[in-house]
Amino acid sequence: MTVPIAYYLILAAILFSIGVASFLIKRNIITIFMSIELMLNAVNLTFVAFAHMWHQITGQIFVFFVMVVAAAEAAVGLAIIIAIFRTRQTLNVDQVNLLKN
């Protein structure tokens, strides 16, 4: 039993849309950051599916680099979140409005 590649791509589209929706709906800055990771995972799934489709290893190499960059981004982003919490004493993005007005 084989699975059409399009099913994998649609699964990735579902995960990406849920990531976009939670990025817009969530108010906690840590959860917003996690929804970025969810979107990155969805895109990685499309890369692996296309690598399988073309029988090329390059797509998997790209996913490896995306993972490395995501790890670096998570470290820096969480440090920024800690710095924001130190100065503003809140994790709610509605209360981080220093540049507003």
């Binding site: 791509l9 649609i10 589209a13 579902i14 990406f16 849309s17 849920i18 976009v20 929706a21 817009l24």
Partner: peptide
């Protein structure tokens, strides 16, 4: 804004 936008993205992609 978020739910219709995400649904639109999903419909377009699928």
């Amino acid at each position: 804004a978020g739910v219709p936008g995400a649904t639109a993205i999903f419909c377009l992609l699928s």
